[in-house]
């Protein structure tokens, strides 16, 4: 039973990593850039919800503030691409990486300015409830995290594989110029994918905050999500979830069976080993490389 408990909490954690990784992968899939500020996006989404919901801030009903937060993060993502990232069009990938890192710094600063640096917890109706199966006690929040993550991944997968817009997004990533010639509005598609990843980040943030407390440095969780995205294969949506679950499952078991201090290095160790052995992940999308 103990092990089952570990597995469930690991799964729930892993799903949050997977959701952040999903944000990376979405942007990577459509724009071939990596958003190093995705973790900070998640933190911002969580804080916006917290700011609307919590009694000592605005005290709105939870579900209303969830919708508001998701909407705001979507608009924010769209505007961010339109105002900032569109200027980077046609510049090197590394420049975008540095830009998004700087963006992360700024978001952390702004969040600290508005909501302070103390850890706060979201007053959500999900926390505190429990489900019991025999001896197994599941937190309602953990169950919700798992359900929402799986549903969202499936939805996004279908969106990319089936809908016209999703395929257009993939095309604009594979060859910007060719996609443009085919009549795909590449710039608008980029903005839309940033909006989408803002929405995903908001959902991840809400789920993360309902599981525990958050503070402006929570965005550094994004590094673990990198491990998830790389393990699963950058560019693959189910891969991101798979990687997230692997990282999430490894953590509690390492914490339990390894001496103190060793457990926290495991996600990164897996990441480095993965990069050395199979850089393109489990669900690889790389095909033969020609000059």
């Amino acid at each position: 039973m103990d092990i089952l408990q570990l597995i469930v909490s690991g799964l729930a954690n892993g799903c949050v990593y997977g959701l952040i990784a999903l944000g990376f992968v979405l942007i990577y899939k459509a724009t071939e850039a990596v958003n190093f500020a995705q973790g900070d996006f998640m933190m911002l989404g969580a804080f916006i919800t917290l700011g609307f919901t919590n009694a000592d801030h605005m005290g709105l009903p939870f579900w209303l503030s969830v919708i508001l937060a998701i909407g705001i993060m979507g608009i924010l993502g769209y505007l961010l691409d339109m105002i900032v990232l569109r200027r980077m069009f046609g510049q090197s990938q590394v420049a975008v990486v540095i830009l998004t890192i700087a963006l992360g710094f700024v978001i952390r600063f702004i969040a600290g300015l508005i909501w302070g640096h103390e850890p706060q917890s979201l007053e959500s109706p999900l926390s505190g409830l429990e489900l019991r199966f025999g001896g197994l006690v599941l937190g309602m929040d953990e169950v919700w995290v798992i359900i929402v993550t799986v549903a969202l991944t499936a939805l996004l997968y279908v969106f990319f594989a089936r809908t016209k817009l999703g395929i257009g997004m993939q095309a604009s990533s594979q060859n910007q110029l060719a996609a443009y010639y085919m009549g795909i509005p590449v710039k608008r598609i980029h903005s839309m994918i940033w909006a989408l990843s803002g929405v995903v980040a908001a959902i991840a943030g809400i789920l993360f905050a309902s599981k525990g407390s958050i503070d402006p440095t929570a965005g550094l969780l994004g590094i673990k999500a990198f491990a998830a995205a790389v393990i699963g294969g950058f560019g693959s949506l189910p891969g991101a979830l798979l990687g997230g679950i692997i990282v999430g499952l490894v953590e509690p078991f390492a914490a339990r069976y390894m001496p103190a201090g060793y457990s926290q290095i495991f996600p990164y160790l897996i990441l480095v080993v993965m990069l050395v052995v199979r850089p393109h992940g489990i669900l690889s999308q790389i095909q033969t490389k020609k000059v």
Binding site: V84, M88, A95, I98, L99, A102, L103, G104, F105, V106, R108, F109, I110, G112, L113, H117, P216
Partner: peptide
């Protein structure tokens, strides 16, 4: 956190 925030803004401006 003012320093790192300001440094981030300067950096974005430069890029």
């Amino acid at each position: 956190g003012l320093e790192s925030g300001l440094f981030g803004i300067i950096l974005i401006g430069f890029i």
